[in-house]
Amino acid sequence: MKTAERILLISLDLFNHHGEPNVSSVDIANELEISPGNLYYHFKGKELIISALFDLYQREMSKILTAPNKDKLNVEDFFYYLLLILQVSHKFLFLYRNPAEISEKYPQVSRSFQRVLASKQKTYATCIQSFAKQGLFVGDSNHQQQMVELLGLITTQSPNYHQLLGRDINDGDYMYQSLATILFSLAPYFNIEQEVFHSLTQLIDNQYAAPSDRQT
């Protein structure tokens, strides 16, 4: 593995576990057992490391948000799709520990973050509209918009909420709690069989198995 790649991997791990403000370039160099000068040779400042990590995050998230057939998902696949989004966000958890602070410190990241969030909202809207067309979502356009906002809020701010409650967010359990919150929020508007609802609840409780692992 190239030194630049190692720097990004170690930086990501340190940022995720300790928070970006609590990790200096010297901390990163010490963890890598390289000199600060060697680190500076590859990344001339922590800002460039943050920018490179955000580029990686943006590429991974874009692959999911631009995935085909998201407008034809059934309800179970929709929740698995949400899990994929949460998993990418969790992989780059430091961005979500305090997104407002990250955005203020790194304006370039802030602008890109806004574009990612806009893409998320567009994707959520496409899914909800598809459910409405299929008769699976019962509600007018205002209800649809409120659900899109709710999805954006939960999938973006959930780590902060659970962290403020004193919970360890590094293990990722909050992702499944977030899915459960979304499920019960959507339940009054979902025109689905009770068996499907209970199946989803069980899947989430069991840390939501991937479609290929489901029993047919």
Results as ranks from 00 to 15, higher is better:
residue 177 Q to I: 09
residue 64 I to M: 09
residue 88 V to F: 03
residue 191 N to E: 07
residue 150 L to P: 00
residue 127 C to A: 11
residue 140 D to Y: 09
residue 127 C to P: 00
residue 93 L to Y: 12
residue 104 E to D: 15
residue 164 L to A: 13
residue 32 L to F: 05
residue 122 K to Y: 01
residue 129 Q to K: 15
residue 13 D to F: 05
residue 205 D to W: 09
residue 40 Y to R: 03
residue 152 G to C: 05
residue 10 I to Q: 14
residue 39 L to R: 03
residue 101 E to R: 14
residue 42 H to G: 00
residue 105 K to E: 15
residue 145 Q to G: 01
residue 179 L to A: 02
residue 88 V to R: 11
residue 53 L to V: 07
residue 122 K to I: 01
residue 8 L to Q: 08
residue 89 S to M: 10
residue 61 M to K: 13
residue 203 L to D: 10
residue 49 I to R: 10
residue 164 L to D: 11
residue 45 G to S: 05
residue 19 G to P: 06
residue 183 L to P: 05
residue 6 R to V: 00
residue 81 Y to M: 11
residue 146 Q to W: 04
residue 67 A to Y: 10
residue 216 T to D: 06
residue 120 K to A: 04
residue 211 P to V: 10
residue 47 E to R: 04
residue 9 L to M: 09
residue 197 F to M: 15
residue 99 P to F: 10
residue 210 A to P: 01
residue 121 Q to Y: 13
residue 167 R to M: 08
residue 90 H to S: 00
residue 94 F to M: 14
residue 156 T to F: 05
residue 199 S to G: 07
residue 85 I to W: 03
residue 200 L to C: 06
residue 66 T to R: 11
residue 213 D to K: 15
residue 50 I to N: 13
residue 208 Y to G: 06
residue 88 V to A: 08
residue 46 K to N: 04
residue 96 Y to E: 08
residue 166 G to T: 07
residue 95 L to C: 12
residue 128 I to R: 03
residue 100 A to R: 14
residue 27 D to P: 00
residue 104 E to K: 15
residue 87 Q to S: 14
residue 118 A to V: 01
residue 45 G to E: 03
residue 84 L to N: 11
residue 135 G to A: 10
residue 1 M to R: 03
residue 68 P to L: 09
residue 13 D to T: 11
residue 35 S to P: 00
residue 56 L to K: 14
residue 111 R to G: 05
residue 21 P to F: 04
residue 214 R to T: 04
residue 192 I to N: 07
residue 100 A to H: 14
residue 16 N to P: 05
residue 63 K to N: 13
residue 43 F to R: 01
residue 18 H to M: 07
residue 97 R to H: 15
residue 134 Q to W: 02
residue 8 L to A: 07
residue 180 A to Y: 08
residue 105 K to F: 08
residue 38 N to A: 10
residue 138 V to T: 03
residue 111 R to F: 06
residue 54 F to E: 13
residue 185 S to M: 08
residue 115 R to S: 12
residue 85 I to T: 15
residue 3 T to Q: 06
residue 207 Q to E: 12
residue 115 R to T: 11
residue 166 G to D: 06
residue 171 D to K: 07
residue 79 F to V: 10
residue 165 L to H: 02
residue 16 N to W: 08
residue 64 I to G: 10
residue 76 E to G: 06
residue 153 L to M: 12
residue 34 I to G: 03
residue 172 G to K: 06
residue 97 R to D: 13
residue 84 L to S: 13
residue 191 N to Q: 12
residue 140 D to P: 06
residue 12 L to K: 15
residue 80 Y to C: 10
residue 61 M to V: 14
residue 125 A to M: 05
residue 95 L to S: 09
residue 127 C to Q: 07
residue 45 G to A: 01
residue 144 Q to W: 02
residue 27 D to L: 01
residue 192 I to P: 04
residue 90 H to M: 01
